[in-house]
Amino acid sequence: MFEILEKERIGPGVNRAVISAPAIAEAHRPGQFIILRTTENGERIPLTVADKDVEKGTITLVWQEVGATTYYMSTMCVGEKFQDICGPLGTPTHIEKFGTVIGVGGGIGVAPLYPITKGMHAAGNHVISIIGARTEGLLIMTEDIRKVSDELIISTDDGSFGVHGFVTQVLQGLIDKGQQIDLVVAIGPVPMMKAVVNVTKKANLPTVVSLNPIMVDGTGMCGACRVEVGGKTMFGCVDGPEFDGLQVDFDLLMKRLAMYKGPELIALNNFRETPRGCQCTFPGGA
């Protein structure tokens, strides 16, 4: 169980793996995530399922190297197994025919946006996807998104590909043009989601965001993933991960995400000093 069947590097520090997990693939709905552990002493980290294949019994995970666990995952090779994968977790995305749905994805957030876009498209929505990154080399999964979108607009902060500017400027442009918009789904770094909500709030557009708070159990037992939505404390793992973006306290989320910055550095240094794992898809080392 949980064997890595395929693995590739899809961008600088970004990896994609197809993993055998038949029961999870079958039960999974767009918007849901899994919690994994790499080894016996590993931490539990949540990752949104980027894609699945029920027939093959696989799920696809996409991750960016940020801490000891994600770096370690990048050294894991085809044929290796994860210690644990628990899922699906979280409340699935509410999918129905809204009309025109705008999907806004930034950086690694494009991965969790993909199954939602796919679902929204399949439900008969007119889907406009806005995908952005700092620079061309950091764009991921653009072709996957293109296949499930009616329109795709790509932007880069440095203008190296597509529109020169932020995804929020593209979105603002659509609003200014008078584009009919029934729902906005935004997933990406917290500052990006906050910026998107600043735009949609002014235009009074319903906006769904997917949050990535720190989690432990993922079943509502510990409360590590507390977020404030409309002044109320909610648990990201069971009440979310998707929330009404217009109500989310993003500043609190950013502070809470920084809670273990110190220990994370210690763990990363510890990892760097410990030679382990395969380096075949891991150019340059950690």
């Binding site: 931490e43 666990t69 210690i266």
Partner: peptide, 13 residues
């Protein structure tokens, strides 16, 4: 459960 007392030998802080 996550053995944080062993950190950083165990990953959870």
């Amino acid at each position: 459960l996550m053995k944080a007392y062993m950190f950083p030998e165990a990953d959870t802080p």
